[in-house]
């Protein structure tokens, strides 16, 4: 079904106006699955982040970012460790990201085909975060998803092993070229 941009926007406005009037318990979309203190995210937002995590660092023979809950980590960090103005910017960026996706493909990011996702992210990789809201959301979330992934138990026990008790320091050893790891 093709819907004109104007009609789509009208529908969105109508629906959101309706939602605003309804008590939250009648809302169709349940809240996010983790407790947040400062920002409000619902299950749809969480799905977008999960899909983004899965697209950025997909599951292969090894776990991907979604498998290690890097999207939840992202939500926690924005909620607790971002300044108010940055939270606002990120939330607006998320809306812009969603709108960009719907404008282009008429559905949410998680419904996109791999090609659609790739095309969208390629655009946002090249865009400037300081002028483009969707790019700010994408690039900020990418940084947090990578941080969540590379500091996860999986990554630090199976990929780059973190030693709690190294029990040694050698100041000068020859560099060994590590074997290339397949992800």
């Amino acid at each position: 079904m093709l819907v004109s941009r104007r009609t789509a926007l009208k529908q969105v406005l109508f629906v959101s106006a309706g939602l605003a009037l309804l008590p939250s318990c009648f809302r169709k979309t349940p809240p996010a699955s983790i407790k947040l203190r400062n920002i409000v995210l619902d299950a749809d937002d969480e799905n977008v982040l999960a899909a983004l995590a899965d697209t950025l660092i997909p599951k292969t023979n090894t776990p991907g970012a979604k498998d290690v809950s890097a999207h939840h980590f992202t939500m926690t960090m924005v909620d607790d460790c971002f300044k108010k103005e940055d939270q606002q910017r990120w939330l607006e960026g998320m809306k812009a990201f969603d709108k960009l996706c719907r404008d282009k493909y008429s559905h949410a990011f998680e419904k996109c085909t791999p090609d659609e996702r790739a095309s969208l992210l390629t655009t946002l990789e090249a865009a400037k975060a300081d002028t483009d809201a969707a790019a700010y959301f994408y690039q900020t979330s990418k940084r947090l998803i990578i941080q969540g992934y590379t500091s996860s138990e999986y990554y630090l026990t199976k990929v780059q092993v973190y030693e709690l008790v190294p029990a040694r320091f050698h100041g000068s050893i020859p560099v060994k070229q590590p074997d290339r790891r397949t992800a």
Binding site: T55, L56, I57, P58, T60, T62, G64, A118, L121, E125, K142, I146, Y149, T150, Y155, V159, Q160, V175, P178, R180, R181, T182, A183
Partner: peptide
């Protein structure tokens, strides 16, 4: 310091994250 490149997305990004460089 070891670092990983973080370019792009998808499988190629994951490959970068799996292979630290000095």
């Amino acid at each position: 310091f070891s670092f990983t490149k973080k370019e792009g997305f998808g499988h190629s990004l994951k490959e970068q994250l799996f292979n630290e460089e000095l």
